[in-house]
């Protein structure tokens, strides 16, 4: 508990939000990088379908995504059974793991798109030149691609993190509202409003507002200085 202007604020939702956002960002960078690379190299018309699929969370109501995830995460469903086979215990719905998986889908375009644009901007001649100097694929990726798309990674990580912090619909559908377990800041605010605790809602909302503004200013600042493409 924290006291601000005489109002008691529960810190658990804030820590949980930061934790889920950090884990989501990490997972997105690990999975989004190969996906973005693959998409950047694609020449066929399949790319259109894939781009649309990745961008889907931008237009889909989060409740729709949340609803489907809820169905897929069914504790007796094949996905959970499959994970059990590898020693997974507990369940995906109404748990932190489920929240992270949901957030990964929800924030996917915010990580993949900046990375894809960064990768597309790299001249293939550079990679060809590196190959003639005996650099293997991974060697080329880490010595040429990664340093040249630094800003893309920075933007991807920032946006993925910020977007996860701000999610509501998916969290509510998949995670529910279990205090200390799945109650994130956005839901906490909703809760406070419902119980007419406007002071708490004000403070949390103001914190979110300042945080989001700071993040966006960082991204646009990078954009201006280094010409990073976003979205």
């Amino acid at each position: 508990m924290l006291e601000i202007f005489g109002t008691q604020i529960s810190l658990a939702p804030i820590w949980l939000t930061l934790e889920v956002a950090a884990m989501t960002t990490l997972v997105l960078l690990l999975l989004g990088t190969p996906l973005a690379w693959w998409m950047a190299q694609m020449r066929s018309s399949n790319k259109v379908l894939l781009e649309a699929l990745v961008a889907l969370p931008l237009v889909l109501p989060p409740t729709v995504l949340g609803f489907y995830l809820l169905i897929v995460f069914n504790p007796t469903g094949p996905v959970t059974e499959f994970l059990r086979f590898f020693g997974f215990e507990g369940q995906l719905t109404f748990s932190k793991t489920g929240l992270v998986i949901g957030s990964v889908f929800y924030s996917l375009p915010f990580a993949v798109q900046p990375l894809m644009h960064a990768f597309e901007a790299i001249s293939h001649r550079l990679l060809d030149a590196a190959a003639t100097m005996r650099a293997s694929f991974l060697d080329r990726f880490f010595t040429i691609v990664v340093p040249l798309s630094q800003r893309g990674f920075l933007v991807a990580a920032t946006l993925a993190f910020a977007h996860t912090v701000g999610e509501f619909g998916v969290v509510l559908m998949v995670g529910g509202n279990i205090p200390g377990e799945t109650r994130m800041v956005s839901i906490d605010i909703f809760d406070h409003v419902e119980s007419l605790e406007y002071d708490q809602a004000h403070i949390l909302s103001a914190m979110m507002l300042i945080f989001s503004l700071a993040v966006l200013m960082t991204v646009y600042g990078l954009n201006r200085r280094f010409g990073v493409k976003v979205g």
Binding site: S123, A131, R134, T143, L148
Partner: peptide, 30 residues
Amino acid sequence: LPTERRHIGFVFQDAALFPHMNVRQNLNYA
């Protein structure tokens, strides 16, 4: 056989120097 195992050097029309490295680092890459 992958390019990296053919032992060739390649000079491109646009030189294809690595822009994030200085001249010495470019040379040392090889």
